[in-house]
Design a protein around this nucleic acid. Sequence first.
DNA 1: GTCCCATCGGACCGACCGGTTCCATCTAAG
DNA 2: CTTAGATGGAACCGGTCGGTCCGATGGGAC
Lengths: 199, 199
Amino acid sequence: MPVPKGSSLDPDRTRAAILHTAEGILYARGLDGVGVAELCAEAGISKETLYRHFGSKEGLIRCVLEARSDRVIRWLAQAAADAGDEPANQLAAVFDALGAWFGEPGFRGCAIVNAATQHHDTPTGTIASRHLGRYLDLFTDIATRAGAAHPAALGRQLLLLLEGAIVVADHLDGPVAAGDAREAALALLHRAASRPADG
Amino acid sequence: MPVPKGSSLDPDRTRAAILHTAEGILYARGLDGVGVAELCAEAGISKETLYRHFGSKEGLIRCVLEARSDRVIRWLAQAAADAGDEPANQLAAVFDALGAWFGEPGFRGCAIVNAATQHHDTPTGTIASRHLGRYLDLFTDIATRAGAAHPAALGRQLLLLLEGAIVVADHLDGPVAAGDAREAALALLHRAASRPADG
DNA sequence: GTCCCATCGGACCGACCGGTTCCATCTAAG
DNA sequence: CTTAGATGGAACCGGTCGGTCCGATGGGAC
């Protein structure tokens, strides 16, 4: 049996349900905008269960954010992979995927960056750094395969466009930002690839 | 007399002192990370004085953010103006100024965007929109004077670089982001100016 | 001197917070 | 059946929150 101890249902299932419910509410209302009591009520569990699984509200937040980071990175990497082998097409696909996300109701920016902004001194900040680093890996890989002269620098610039697009989409003009970012990203990629020996 | 009623010192002076102290603490610790009592203690005033001047904590936050937005925009516009008339030089100067800011101890991202992230449903969100719009005006002006084919689109792309740089500097690599953004911004400007009839 | 009023210091309020504990209950393993 | 562990429900804790109110002080304006 994969279930180590007996219980009414499945502890792993319970844990996953808590994470899923908490992710939505914490994203929509902010880390400090919702109390543990409400999270438990929405998830249909007791506070004792939550504290047995996650130890503290901060522990729950950490697990939620790590799961979210994994999912977001996998989603963008898949969007790139689905676009074929051409780096430019992959880059365009990434920003197209972002545009679709920006247009969804309830879009409120990047949950991980938002969380780090709200609790900047906690381990949450570390999760955000790792998250941005994973974006960077994705972009640097694309830049490298595109033959950019300085793939690391181009990767960082593409990351600026991604993060800028998220912020601007959240606070100013929604999905429009994704189109602007896409166009700028392709321009930077083309420039770097057409000058492989020099900037 | 500019002072309407008698008081121990000067109500306007008191108000400005509250704003100054509150701005620093709210920026460093977050909107929900500090209570009204502590803000009053640090500013050397009583809660009654704070509530008479600002009505509520939200009212205080609103005044702090509006003052901050004014100051930041004026600071960047001045940096551009000090760089002469050449649009490319002005753009470079803006990102150089950002780089200096990113390196300052206590840098924590954009106070206005951070605030909107923390209290997204309050009027704070409106302040953030206006703030980004003012950046946009600055960049669109530079793009127009540079002879860009689509100055509005270029302005929005430059805004993406600025906001992205702030986020990345805050959560990943500090002042490096400003240099990357500067280089990308100049590349986008050059591209748009050298193709004034077509993208 | 006499008012006026901004101010301070602090008591006070109700609400909510994160977190702990106890207990009855249910389920699955043996 | 017995037993052990996971659970829900709820009471409870100390602390903090934003906000109000009151008494005392002290400096202009007249």
